[in-house]
Design a protein around this nucleic acid. Structure first.
Lengths: 347, 347
DNA sequence: CGCCGGTCCGCAAACGTTACCAATTCAAAC
DNA sequence: GTTTGAATTGGTAACGTTTGCGGACCGGCG
């Protein structure tokens, strides 16, 4: 059951192990003839490099650790997938490790990954910051934190890649303005969260520049969900003098709440009200929802993170910390419509 | 930047490397006193075992390869998460590898994983069976195929773990019968797919036993989706003498289509029609859907698969192939209601 | 005193690679 | 004819562990 090694190949093709190694890594100092012969034997025997041994001696494992929060949402799924894909293209494998650091006697994800001698760590941020990175990085290898919440740790000594939430908010306002809307509402997320703050600021900044009115509705709940979207929508619709023709929900979950309430109240979307979301979660694409929304562009996010991590690994740089912002894009579906200029806002 | 090794510890605590090794693996042939001393030095120095070296010599990497299809859906996300969790509890790490075997010059996932010397491979089945396993397993290490479609490869020499689709169909019929329904419909999946066949057979078998009428609607499309659900629903509702009080949709996607069409036609759910799905996809839990459905129980599925793979690894058995079926469970939400016995079916 | 058994420890060989340094050949240059 | 140099190859020491075997020490027994 022993798998065949470089020694076997050497014996079988009548050369030394060194030569076999050279043939495999097509080193310059080997004759084409020998190389071909050796490689043929390798193929015949089904030889496979033992990467453990290679990593051991080169002290580079070409492994990347990926730390995920314990909950499985489509966002993280897509992130993981793209990360793996990009890493593999660049010659790296992904070692998975899902949250829950101190459950029972289990070691923390970081310890495990470091023991496996990963070359770097990619960490999808959790809102639950119960376990953040150890103070000075995970200890020895570079680390990139990835995702929206990463912005919160703006002072920490970490490398982060996240969506540009400010820009997203800005784009939302521009988009609605271009459609002709002049009276809009912003429905927020968990108050104080950086995601909320940035998207809000972006939206308000653009609105101010463009001269577009914004009614801000604060999220009453500690966490934002469809339910809190419902609550905010009801509150908005019942305000005296409600005249908004479009709402920007700071997350798709909130947008779904808005749609639900509008449905209940017989408010037609998009005829009477345009709704714009943020995140492009899977639900948004459902045929009976078709939510127009701002997409985080997970593939790009993933690629940027992997690239950054690569650079850190190659350079060995550990004194300078980078922060990348990825510009989101608008996914046009069916919940926003242009407003002709002579249309009066509803009473 | 060299990380500290067992040799450093040996030097620092004045013993041999052997002794340090024994202390770390708490071998019996070491005095408690020495062990404590060595371990203290390890802690002080922040020593971390180099698993590469350990794996190299023990020829057991405690690594499991996980092969996923290229598309990221919540089902696979949940699966991966649970697999990782379970594996870690049992002392194994997961090495991720996502589909797309022969894109460009990239090596196949299996080659990569085998080069990393994983102890076993877990493969989430794809409907796209373009790349199945190499004929005789992936070559050297045990492999478990996981997921619904796995049933199709019933003759192949593979170990599989999948949900018991027949039982699911059976449970569906029993459930609807117990609610009082006597006239039901079954809306199918891609014709010829094992998932469809088994769920259908299970449903029909139970219905026959119980004496419950079933109107079967075949899926017209090559792949089943919300749209095909819509089509089947329209076809059913327009049949002359339509009298069904409940439909069992063989997947949640199909069920969503049914709900949508019922909505359009003003057919109230669950008042006029009960709808039962299968899969418990994320959408099913949305507050404005609340689909009653049969759940695949991914955590259990994942655990079973990991357990099976472990057994195969430990035993070294490679001549007998196992097939595990996991019983699904019913998630009761809001789309099914009991029918009082005197209620007449709608005209 | 010699022997035995047990407890604790160290030496050195492995695991499958790569890297450094030398050795060999052969042709061209002096 | 000797030197130089390039091209190709081989031997061997690493990398950080684990493991088999043997040695040292000690207490107890005949």
């Amino acid at each position: 059951m022993r798998s065949i090694t470089i020694k076997d190949i050497a014996r079988l093709s009548g050369v030394s192990v060194t030569t076999v190694s050279r043939a495999l890594n097509n080193a310059p100092e080997i004759s084409e003839e020998t190389q071909e012969r050796v490689l043929r034997v390798c193929r015949e025997q089904g030889y496979r490099t033992n990467l453990l041994a290679r990593s051991l001696i080169s002290s580079r494992s070409h492994l990347l650790g990926l730390v995920l929060p314990e909950l499985a949402n489509p966002y993280h799924a897509s992130l993981s997938l793209n990360i793996e894909l990009c890493a593999r293209e660049l010659g790296y494998q992904i070692m998975l490790c899902c949250g829950r650091p101190e459950k029972g006697q289990m070691k923390s994800p970081f310890d495990l990954l470091l023991s496996q001698r990963v070359d770097g760590i990619l960490m999808a941020s959790t809102s639950d910051s119960a376990y953040a990175l150890p103070q000075n990085g995970p200890g020895g290898v570079p680390c990139v934190v990835l995702g929206a919440c990463a912005a919160e740790s703006t002072t920490a000594r970490t490398n982060t890649v996240s969506v540009d939430n400010f820009m997203g908010g800005y784009m939302a306002a521009e988009y609605l303005f271009r459609l002709g809307h002049r009276n809009t509402a912003y429905l927020g997320l968990r108050p104080g969260s950086s995601t909320h703050t940035l998207r809000n600021q972006g939206f308000l900044t653009a609105a101010r520049t463009l001269g577009m009115a914004v009614e801000v509705v604060e999220n009453p709940d500690p966490s934002s969900s469809i339910e809190s979207g419902c609550r905010m929508a009801r509150q908005l619709f019942r305000r005296p003098g409600f005249c908004q023709t479009a709402v920007f929900a700071a997350s798709d979950a909130v947008a779904l709440g808005v749609i639900q309430v509008a449905d209940e109240l017989g408010l037609a979307i998009p005829e009477q009200l345009s709704v714009l979301g943020f995140d492009n979660i899977e639900y948004a694409a459902l045929p009976n929802i078709r939510l127009t929304t701002i997409s985080q562009n997970t593939p790009l996010l993933a690629r940027s993170a992997v690239r950054l991590l690569m650079e850190l690994i190659e350079s060995g740089e550990d004194a300078v910390y980078t922060r990348k912002l990825v510009t989101p894009s608008i996914i046009q579906r069916a919940t926003c419509r242009p407003l002709s200029s002579e249309e009066a806002p509803p009473a």
